[in-house]
Design a protein around this nucleic acid. Structure first.
Lengths: 205, 205, 205, 205
DNA sequence: GATGAATGAGTATTCATTCAT
DNA sequence: GATGAATGAATACTCATTCAT
């Protein structure tokens, strides 16, 4: 039956990328849940129903799989971040949109976000993954530009260090990937709403 | 039986436990920086200036080292958390003290905090480390009791889910272990001050 | 049955055998430069611009390629050697012609000679390649008959063991494949001339 | 029984190097007979009676074993070569001594010589083994200085290119490692004698 | 307390080969 | 003739752990 499916897909033209994409999906999920180093090539192959050696027909190495996953993810996130910042006007509204975009990303790309959250420290030490750190910094720059604008315009409080501000928001938002369950009590839009409310107004009643 | 022996040694205090403490310190630092799974017994032994096999005179296994490190850490954190909650009265003040205590802990036990942050997901899957999850839940319970009290008393806003509230605070606070550098631009007291200010008043000017 | 098919194809001549020859040429060059075991089927296929699996339309196995290359080479060398020995008369002249023929072969079939030089020890251990050892021995017999004749006729010195004599000549001549560069400072005819001069007259002035 | 042996040796002080030396001996023999790439770490371990992983207690890698073997061998050969050239006076006599030294080396370090003969082309392509090529070149320089001196003094014929001369001698001599069997019909001294006779006087009677 | 040698199970990767399409 | 996916066996190397000395 897998064969029939492939035939259909091959006719559509996306033959090559189909199998690769499937395997990358599996790899991403496993990397996210057990950690990159703790996931063996055999784990991935088992899940895909092939032998571990056969993975090397599709990817040059385990690292190459990680690279491909992260490159697409970081690229997408950086793109959406920049777009929101460039298209927006009011700092407060832009921040809200960035936050909503983050929770949306957590909702739709759970594995990739978790993977990034768990491994970024490790990746930062490997030259081949410099692109991850680079993208992170560009994203930070985009956020900081908005926060700076908000402070300058008087919309945001100025007694808190902007970099600190960014880190608190970033960490609180992205860490939610560890506890957020799609289909759970709170959906990602509600979570975003509540976070935004808390952030703007503070804890005080 | 290893346990009885250890107890005996601990009671003797002196040289033996000093060496143990040294080794645990080294292990904690390495576990924190490279990750538990990525740290080899040989790494630790090398750093301690002995052969890897010799470590087994002090500890039953690599896991035993991790257990010992986390048991002490979780015990201490749970203790201080409970003490603050019990001794305090005003929810707002108690929350502040809990936050300050967290940043203080990050400052003084960086390795242990980082270790806990990095490995807790992995540890949650291992029965032997159930005590970690258990302590985490007790700590959560203590925080939630304070937040609940604050909401009930009208001190804290009530439109945000309390559990969500706790998670946002917890994640923003503890994640700072990844970027906080002692002796850096901002000391841990300032960081705590600013976080508290932001939390209470919100971003809005 | 693969054999019959190949025979059939060979008789057709044309495109099929041309492609085979091309592939064998590529294989021979790679076997010679990196060694048989170190050359992967994929290396050969890459160089030929096809996928590794496709090579199996032309050859039954990697070993079959080696067999075909060596069979042709050993056959040719044995043939020319025998011809020279049979057609010649004066031992000294025949030896010279054999030597010139060797250097000519090195010049024109560098890959095959290098391949044979590098792998003959390994091949000697494999039953399938007994034909290589057999041809080598026949070539040796041909040379020895000439050297023996020269000793008997008084043309060559008799104080040196004939087998030893043969080996020294053979090794000095064929090893030149490792340093001889066509188009270099010395062409193969000059090299042959100088070797012959040295061999006959010796080092002494 | 191996244990008792080790104890005895340990008392002599050569404990560490003893086991290493044994393993290197085994490795050298296997590298020489099957080739470096064709010898598996498991082959060596099997022969040593341990598991393959245990080899890594003694050596960092398979390559490290090869390095150690070749470093000692090349060092020794370069040393003896230089000594003979420096101590000698008459070119003809020095050449003889160099040749005798080579056959002596083949006799006493068969594995190392065979290894060097078989792998030097491959090693030349690996930066880590540049020391091998370097030593080879220094040895060549030493030989060439003697051959040059002989040509200048009129002792040796001048119509043959000196570099060519060197290569013919070198290849004929060292290639004998492939057929020389200690304890065979001809001992290494006789082989050396006959080669020297042939070299000086030539084939002509 | 420490050494040094070894175990054994695992880990990423390689590669000749097969085969349906 | 060629592709693309897969096999299966092997390969170098890792590492927590054991144990006699």
């Amino acid at each position: 039956m897998a064969a029939t499916k492939n035939v259909a897909e091959r006719k559509r033209g996306g033959a090559t990328s189909t199998r690769r994409a499937e395997l990358l999906e599996i790899a991403a999920t496993m990397f996210a849940t057990r950690g990159y180093a703790q996931t063996t090539v055999r784990d991935i192959a088992d899940e895909a129903g092939i032998l571990s050696g056969s993975l090397y027909h599709h990817f040059a190495s385990k690292e190459a799989m990680l690279t491909e996953i992260l490159q697409e993810f970081m690229g997408g996130l950086l793109g959406s971040t920049k777009r929101i910042v460039e298209e927006g006007d009011d700092p407060s509204e832009v921040i809200d949109r960035l936050i909503r975009n983050s929770f949306e990303t957590i909702h739709q790309q759970r594995s990739e976000v978790a993977l990034y959250q768990n491994e970024s420290a490790f990746l930062a030490t490997i030259p081949e993954f410099a692109f991850v750190t680079k993208a992170s910094l560009e994203i930070e720059k985009a956020w900081l530009s908005v926060l700076d604008a908000g402070c300058t315009s008087g919309a945001f409080r100025e007694d808190v260090d902007v970099k600190l501000l960014y880190r608190f928001i970033r960490d609180a938002v992205w860490a939610s990937v560890h506890w957020y369950k799609p289909g759970g009590r709170l959906d990602h839009v509600t979570v975003a709403d509540q976070f935004i409310a808390l952030l703007h107004g503070g804890l005080r009643n």
